[in-house]
Write a protein that binds this DNA or RNA. Structure first.
Ligand code: MN
Ligand code: MN
Ligand code: ZN
Ligand code: ZN
Lengths: 136, 136
DNA sequence: CTCGCGGTGCAACCCGGTTGCAAAGGTGAC
DNA sequence: GTCACCTTTGCAACCGGGTTGCACCGCGAG
């Protein structure tokens, strides 16, 4: 477990501090995306800005990706190992309107969208809202 | 023009105050979605909270719809007349990464998405990001 | 041992959104 | 016309999420 954490950090050239190990472990364990507020709850002894900067470091090194689910708070989830090289979000995200958890649906691809002329697409953000398996 | 504004307000049972007429006119004239900050720029003599509450009133009466484009600021656009009865956003939105304008693509429908079992969809928010016709 | 750098904590800030409350305005009853 | 009542507006303050400047600390290189 610990070794897996360290391997992941090393693979992205991130120095494995205690804080980073803990945060990455938490991110990997949680089945849904994690917000800064979640981290604050979990690691109440750590400073908000440390948690924030850790997320930013992870994101910059493409260890995690940020999800804008429209709730106003950013969520983060660990990237698949596969997305080592180029980091693009080609999967769908699901926001449960009951528990307000956000899930990466890695198996659901974002469909191609045909736009009117004049619009050049570069990325797509697709959020499905509804009720998750845990809340039904 | 003025009559059209008033007709629209009346159709949604919104009392046509001067402020509301002006704001609705502005919303109808703009080819892209409008943020609270946009309204503050345009109507600098009016109070932020008045503008805010006007938007909320319009939204509650389904005269406009809110767009979460992931920029952190909410955008609003007038609904089509067609969406009188039930208000659902079944069209795609486009966010230009150059000029940061958001457009309603009323002609582009949101495709159906097949989810893993356990997830019950209720709404879909689809944002395409790229470069708009004005910025290319 | 000393220097330098990166990580952390603390405090403050920013921005968009939101609310409580009082003043202003409009409308109908009398 | 006057009053009571309800709605709209303005002002001020607040809130939560995100962000930053700066000082301190710990560790590794030299
Ligand atoms: Mn994801
Ligand atoms: Mn729209
Ligand atoms: Zn749920
Ligand atoms: Zn543009």
């Amino acid at each position: 477990m610990k070794e897996k954490i360290d391997r992941k950090l090393e693979a992205k050239s991130i120095k494995p501090t205690a804080m980073r190990q803990l945060i990455l472990e938490y991110l990997m364990e949680s089945r849904n995306a994690v917000s800064l507020a979640d981290l604050e709850d979990k690691f109440d002894y750590a400073d908000r800005s440390t948690l924030f900067r850790t997320l930013k470091t992870f994101e910059k090194h493409k260890l995690i990706h940020c999800i804008e689910d429209g709730t106003g708070s950013q969520k983060y989830a660990v990237c698949l190992d596969a997305c080592e090289v180029d980091h693009e979000d080609f999967h769908v995200h699901f926001l449960c309107e009951k528990c307000h958890q956000t899930y990466c649906l890695y198996d659901v691809e974002v469909p191609a969208i045909k736009l009117p002329s004049g619009f050049t697409p570069e990325a797509i953000n697709l959020i499905v809202k509804g009720v998750c398996h845990a809340c039904r």
